[in-house]
Design a protein around this nucleic acid. Structure first.
Lengths: 202, 202
DNA sequence: CCCCAAAGCATAGCAGCGCTATGTATTGTT
DNA sequence: AACAATACATAGCGCTGCTATGCTTTGGGG
């Protein structure tokens, strides 16, 4: 082995693809490498083809999502935190709708499957805390509830990002999450308060 | 005006595209018309291009969905019926996953927007009945609750059809719908029973 | 009744796509 | 210093959706 790949080139291509996606320019093999000085072969050297590029884009998307979720503060009210995580999830999806669409496009596959799990883990951890402080029943399946919360977030994000529902439909997250958390043992009024508090920034 | 389009040709192309989608064959302009005797121009005559074909496919998908939902029996238990509608929605999505994906793909647009509304209407009607028989509070927003039920169904369908969640994750619909309907005033145990009954065929 | 204009339809070809074969340039290893 | 393996550039292939161009068909007016 004598010549090594330059990770910076790889990162540059990913960043450029993300920017083109954001600017709604079609991301094609030739248009992607144009202006970077690299040739079309670079995409094959670093990603093995366009499919590999999309896979890397999904990874990038989950990375950004994880970063956003990590920024959500953990307060002494875990139910509030769960709602805040949901709000951050939806904010992320709407901030870069095309990247979000790529993340869940056909052929869902990740270079590192742990990235998607990490997203769920943030939810699981909050659920566990809610159980710990007595808001949720102890027999609540944390992983299951995390998946259910994800389903609500993704369902709304997908329907809004893809067009069927208007932006303000995102507000449906509040009653839906409140209903779900109440069903886990939280007291209805307090639950509603926590969810609304977590949903509205600050 | 002298020569008129043949609606049968249009229908034939749509059916063929749906079949190719089901058989996971790539639906391209040339492969679509091959074997039909028609030339590539037919797609432009009847759909104005491939975009128009996809739009027609979305319409077809919503049509099939509406037909499936219409087959769901209306019983004296509207909460059960709501769950049955959700089950039918998910069954439809999983029966033809590629068509379902097309229905919500980027560029969501319908020839007849009423088709999507009709889907929601089946839910709204069931919600109204639930209010009528005293299962749901009278102040429940029927349209809002229908959208929320749709969000759960689409969220699960999308996550399963696109890969992130395994098939058995569809079972999450039961606790989610039960939680949602309970939050609308239904008694928890009865709600759970109704939802489980509607979810399981028969 | 006939005829012609308007529409459907077939053919051919264009630009762009992802991909790959091939040759060249580069660089860590021995 | 020479080698070998890898990165990279170029050119071209088969495919894509689309359109320009004629030919064929056919319904409605003189």
């Amino acid at each position: 082995m004598v010549r090594t790949k330059d990770p910076a080139v790889r990162a540059k291509l990913i960043q450029r693809a993300a920017q083109m996606l954001r600017e709604r320019q079609p991301v094609t093999l030739r248009s992607l490498v144009a202006g970077t000085g690299a040739s079309t072969m670079a995409v094959y050297t670093y990603f093995g083809g366009m499919d590999g590029l999309w896979k890397a884009m999904r990874q990038e998307g989950f990375g950004r999502l994880a970063a956003r979720l990590a920024e959500v503060p953990r307060t002494e009210d875990p139910v509030r935190d769960l709602a805040a995580l949901g709000a951050a999830y939806l904010a992320n999806a709407l901030a870069e709708p095309d990247l979000y669409r790529v993340m869940f496009d056909a052929g869902f596959e990740l270079e590192d499957p742990a990235a998607a799990d990490a997203t769920l883990h943030a939810l699981v951890e909050a659920v566990e805390r809610a159980k710990g402080v007595g808001r949720f029943r102890t027999d609540v399946d944390a992983a299951g509830l995390a998946v259910q919360s994800w389903t609500i977030g993704h369902g709304l994000a997908s329907l809004v990002v893809n067009g069927p529902l208007p932006r303000q439909a995102l507000g449906n997250a509040v009653p839906m999450l409140a209903a779900l958390f109440t069903s886990c043992g939280d007291e209805a009024a307090a639950c509603r308060r926590s969810v609304e508090s977590g949903w509205t920034p600050h």
